[in-house]
Design a protein around this nucleic acid. Structure first.
Length: 273
DNA sequence: AAACCTCCCTGGGGGC
DNA sequence: TGCCCCCAGGGAGGTT
């Protein structure tokens, strides 16, 4: 589900919601496991603490107290919501963090592909989930020269390459399709065949589409909600994703669909070469 | 080493 | 209405 813009939107929302810095009084976990079991020590570690910062690395949310960091990944269907502590639980709620001010922060995840882990303060980057991650796409390090070098002698399609979290993080199936459209590059093109000028266009396209999606609060296809329970609005701005047989917004020709390594791709065969 | 495939889950939609 | 199959925003682990 959530790619960088959705996770960033949730991050900003949680930062605001947690700015009250109320102490945790208790934590309740469901018996179901997410991708990994949730740590039993969560209640003991968080009780008496307040969250002092909320950060994002790739598609991971990092919630800091003074002595630990909660690592959260939303998988395909995860969401966080703030509710009154006396509000009834919903099906698929898996973690409920109760604060002294009468509110509760709740992790909800029907498919349970998400993650909820605990790291010692400052040690989250050592987690196996974070240690091999590539560059942040909105950082100054993300350059055409870097991508050209990394793509050398790679026989993967460009779409798979820009979705490889070891190379660049945060780009998933929707925004890969959208960025390639805006850069005029077909998703099947080999990464090693993309020249420097094309990389410059593609990097600009990735940064623009991620930035615009953040401004629109992300894309809601089905499950995604921000920390206030609101939907994203970027789905109205999509040029190709999910638009098979609909007219290209630029040239009018029908958008094409293909399956690449098990995932749907969408492109315009006139606008993308 | 690199590039596929499979699997972890629930639920919604389409075809019959 | 029901059943069955396919699909979905991710990503680690296994296989070739």
């Amino acid at each position: 589900m959530p790619e960088l813009p959705e996770v960033e939107t949730v991050c900003r929302g949680l930062r605001e919601q947690l700015s009250a810095k109320s102490e945790v009084v208790s934590v309740a976990l469901s018996r179901k496991k997410l991708r990994e079991p949730m740590p039993k020590s969560l209640a003991a570690k968080l009780s008496g603490q307040a969250f002092i910062a909320v950060r994002r690395r790739a598609k991971y949310l990092l919630l800091d107290t003074e002595n630990a960091t909660v690592i959260s990944h939303l998988g395909m269907s995860g969401s966080w919501r703030m509710a009154a502590t006396d509000e009834a639980a919903q099906k698929h709620d898996h973690c409920r963090i109760n604060f002294a001010d009468g509110r509760s922060l709740i992790y909800h995840d029907p498919r349970r592909f998400g993650l909820l882990l605990l790291a010692e303060l400052g040690a989250e980057q050592k987690s196996k989930w974070l240690k091999s991650l590539g560059l942040e796409p909105l950082s100054v390090d993300f350059t055409a020269a870097y991508m050209l070098q990394k793509a050398k002698r790679k026989s993967v399609a460009i779409k798979n390459f820009i979705m490889d979290q070891k190379i660049v993080v945060g780009v998933g199936n929707i925004y890969a399709a959208e960025a390639l459209f805006h850069a005029g590059i077909r998703p099947q093109k080999l990464a090693s065949r993309v020249d420097l000028a094309s990389w410059q266009r593609l990097i600009a396209a990735i940064q623009n589409v991620l930035g615009d999606a953040i401004k629109h609060g992300g894309t809601t296809l089905r499950d995604y909600r921000n920390a206030r329970g609101e939907l994203g609005e970027f789905q109205a701005e999509l040029f190709v994703y999910g638009r098979e047989n609909e007219n290209c917004k630029t040239c009018g020709s029908p958008i094409k669909w293909l399956k690449q390594t098990g995932r749907s791709s969408y492109f315009c065969k006139v606008c993308q070469k």
